[in-house]
Nucleic acid binder design. Structure first.
Lengths: 235, 235
DNA sequence: ACCTGAACACCGTTCAAGT
DNA sequence: ACCTGAACACCGTTCAAGT
């Protein structure tokens, strides 16, 4: 069991391992299951990115034949859907936030959302395909409820939610796409200096080199929430 | 030439067509070129989506052998990059907007940006891969310049630009992913009604069925610009 | 119920070659 | 300089079959 973790096992030894366990009937750990498949898919996506997830490689990591997956899953698409949603679970705000502090709650929810996606950079680029897993819906529901409690009128709720959603998704997306490897970053920097004659303003502001993404995210989010709070006060 | 447009030409007739032209040396239209490749790639992407763009099919549309493309282009990736950037050209604000109206200018720029991407829904999902083509940089440059002229301090410029960029990208992205085919929409609606016990707030607000995306986009953008204008007034 | 290997269709790209 | 067909490596998935 401890050896299972070491990762560099040969295919054959995994087979033997499986054979040993197949004598007993406990569903302890080795047998294939949706849970294991999804968890391993997330690992693989973390390690190799979207293009690195191939059914054969996933099966390999699970120590099973490539086609075994298809009993648990219809498609590769479904693997993507499940992996995406599994990464977006929300555990709720910490106790340090008081329950009347709606702004604090919303802030935490959205920062956590962004953080969850950044922990798995592939998740951002997967979102446009099929977006509505249960965890995403829960997050939207909780966001709606919080804003509603905070006094946002039903008529304004959708705009508020979409604005926040758009901002978070866009920010994650942008961060994931600009946060390149160091090599790429160096190349981009070089190229940009050459281009700063053509694009003087963004050259001067160091727009593309400024990597305080977290700070920028919070400040922008503040702007949005200011707008919402003001609307709410006026309404 | 007129027949070229009709689209349903057989492979053989296209070949003959090419043979007829090969007797002359004018580079009138038929010969392969980066421009033609990119334009045709955009057509193909519009018609078949990201997954529909295959090198062989692209070559077919161009009436050339599949491998001919590789003389003009390194990769399929490069085709994507070029197609994406080609779709994001900006022609500037209309004359109806006065040049001192920075808010109007910014508003137009961002609405146009979003509209351009929505005209080619695949563009949103391509953005995260490689984002910095010349047309995107021009748009960022123009946005920076306008905000700068409007009085946004250099120190706040990056936050302002990223906030707006994030919002636009997120909004386009979201819209593209939720604007499903009618079948899917009907299915989603049905499913959502079943789920509205579990997600009562978003069920009540009809969050996922409300399809006034354009209105929501404008209102949210107003919120952001309000925030920016206020910061600017305070600073 | 759960897993498997062989096989198929498909696709990006290399290569050696044509003009 | 520009284009090409044959061929290779790879990948998702079907199928018929095993236990």
């Amino acid at each position: 069991m401890a050896t299972k973790r070491s990762g560099a096992q040969s295919k054959r030894s995994r087979r033997i391992d499986a054979a040993l366990h197949s004598g007993q009937e406990p569903r302890s750990e080795p047998p294939l299951s949706l849970e294991r498949i999804v968890a391993t898919a997330v690992e693989l996506l973390d390690a190799e990115g979207v293009d690195g997830l191939k059914m054969r490689r996933l099966a390999d990591r699970l120590g099973s034949g490539a086609m075994s997956l298809y009993w648990h899953v219809d498609n590769k698409e479904e693997v993507f859907d499940l992996a995406l949603d599994s990464v977006l679970e929300y555990r709720g705000p910490p106790q340090t936030i008081e329950s009347e502090d709606w702004r604090g709650e919303v802030f935490h929810m959205l920062e956590d959302w962004r953080a969850s996606m950044l922990r798995h950079p592939w998740s951002a680029s997967l979102l446009p395909r099929r977006a509505l897993g249960p965890n995403i819906l829960s997050r939207l529901e909780l966001l709606s409820k919080t804003l509603s409690k905070a006094g946002v009128a039903d008529a304004d709720l959708n705009v508020a939610i979409w604005s926040l959603w758009n901002y978070v998704v866009g920010a994650t997306f942008t961060r994931a796409s600009f946060d390149l490897s160091d090599d790429d970053r160096a190349a981009a920097q070089l190229r940009l200096e050459q281009l700063s004659e053509r694009y003087p303003t963004i050259g001067r502001s160091r727009l593309l080199l400024d990597n305080d993404w977290d700070g920028a995210f919070r400040k922008g989010l503040d702007l949005l929430l200011d707008g919402l709070a003001q609307d709410e006060a006026e309404g």
